[in-house]
Nucleic acid binder design. Sequence first.
DNA 1: TTTATTTTGTTGACTAGGAAACAAAATAAT
DNA 2: ATTATTTTGTTTCCTAGTCAACAAAATAAA
Lengths: 155, 155
Amino acid sequence: MDKEEQLITNFRDLFDKMVWINKYKMEDRLKECTPSEVHCIESIEKNADSNVRELAKSLYMTRGAISKLTKKLMAKKLIESYQKPENKKEIYFKLTPQGKEIFKIHEDLHKEFRERDKVVFEQITDEQFDSMLYFVEKYNSHLDAEIKKQGLTIN
Amino acid sequence: MDKEEQLITNFRDLFDKMVWINKYKMEDRLKECTPSEVHCIESIEKNADSNVRELAKSLYMTRGAISKLTKKLMAKKLIESYQKPENKKEIYFKLTPQGKEIFKIHEDLHKEFRERDKVVFEQITDEQFDSMLYFVEKYNSHLDAEIKKQGLTIN
DNA sequence: TTTATTTTGTTGACTAGGAAACAAAATAAT
DNA sequence: ATTATTTTGTTTCCTAGTCAACAAAATAAA
């Protein structure tokens, strides 16, 4: 296995591991929500005017899944939907006060995780940090271009 | 959002995106297998003497899921199980010749993906590359220690 | 304007995977 | 040696998410 593959493989493993280890605390602290519900709440709060399609795109899920997920979140009164006067088809979502509480708890948890992992970040220099950020951004935009080139869309 | 969070968020997005974009080609080229079946085949080939428990650990799945997955792969004659004479409980797996073909196709696909993403890697120096590798390894072992500390196990 | 096409969200059938209860084998304790 | 505990794999029930067909609205084409 060459170095590039090593890097990607190790990153994949790192992320799987991170999701897995964080899952426990998440579920303990946010009993009323599944991880993907929390993820959805996060996305709604961070991106203004998210509709089903936008959420599907940002969560890499199908519209069908988002449709069901948002229904559940509405039943739990964590989000609410609204429409724009000029469009009777698109459905947008925003958090209710209870939803914002969940969002807050989630944010706090992330702070905890960052605190837990602080030592790792302390070991690298600012330059290394910035070059990683640069790399990820480059890679992201490369894949965005590739997605466009291949004409891939959600559904 | 501070820089550390930015990095993690961007990496998460990058990986979601990568999985998603690669999925199409995978499914096109490997019609007879789902992504997780391929992932399982990959793990069996790369780690000698994998049993249900080992596979669960390396794929971050439950033993139940692996039990079902390996049954499917056996029905498709892509893997076969064996036991060791001294142990009548543990079940190990290895690839059949057909399974190795799948593995090979998967490897080739990864070469293609690497080729596709070559430009991104060309833009970074060897030092940057090595420091990223170092970072990921540090992060991985940090989480391993954390997992141990918290006493987390598969199931 | 009228008609055709595309976009957007929803629904139902289906599948993958998790949780928990379980049986069998292995290991530890006595 | 016998009994208790732990490990390993399996099975059943259940939920989350995909896929594909669909309806309604919006947009494009005529």
